[in-house]
């Protein structure tokens, strides 16, 4: 009983620019003439906790959040968060992992262990897993905060959105001051 709606789940940690990334993604789908919906979290949930944003697109989208097992692409902004949301993916789901590790409090305190080999584990269950060193890409692009655009660049390879549309949408989304670095981060991200 599925419909043609596709789902992308962006997941990471508060402060990584996830909401901005999902906004840009929505604008790109809109520009291609599709219906689009997204969900966000605000308030206390944003203070360094897990942040997710579902982006759903298609001819007609009903729910702004996807059910488990129905997500086409997981764009993970933080390695550990990948594991937390794997059960949202379809069997042929694509996983894009930012190699950045941000320790949760229990790990910082030495009470819990940050799991190792997350990419390997993920690859055991999903065929297409891509790893991106987004902080490195962002630094090379000239703005350490451009992690989100670097990951969008990597994501763009999985989507049927033209470079023209991406360029236009990115230009609309960033002030002149940071635009160049973000365009650069997007393009470098595309190499993954």
């Amino acid at each position: 009983m599925s419909n043609a709606t596709k789902s992308i789940l962006l997941a990471g940690v508060g402060g990584q620019g996830i909401l901005r990334a999902s906004d840009i993604l929505c604008l790109a789908f809109m520009a291609t003439g599709l219906d689009v919906k997204k969900s966000e979290v605000h308030g206390m949930a944003q203070r360094g906790g897990c942040v997710t944003s579902h982006v759903r697109y298609g001819a007609k989208v009903y729910s702004p959040i996807a059910k488990k097992g129905d997500v086409d692409i997981l764009l993970s902004f933080e390695k550990l968060e990948t594991l937390r949301y794997l059960d949202y993916l379809k069997a042929d789901g694509v996983v894009i992992i930012n190699e950045e590790e941000i320790y949760p409090p229990s790990v910082n305190l030495g009470d819990a262990i940050y799991p190792g080999n997350i990419e390997v584990l993920t690859s055991r269950y999903f065929k297409k897993v891509k790893c991106v060193n987004a902080p490195d890409v962002a630094r090379r692009a000239g703005n350490a905060r451009a992690i989100n655009t670097a990951l969008l660049g990597a994501l763009s390879n999985e989507l049927m959105i033209t470079d023209d549309v991406w360029n236009r949408v990115l230009k609309e989304s960033f002030p002149q001051k940071t635009l160049e670095a973000n365009l650069q981060a997007f393009n470098l991200g595309k190499l993954f």
Partner: peptide, 9 residues
């Protein structure tokens, strides 16, 4: 998976 509760900045 270690939980990631919100935290003071």
């Amino acid at each position: 998976i270690p939980p990631r509760p919100p935290n003071l900045c």
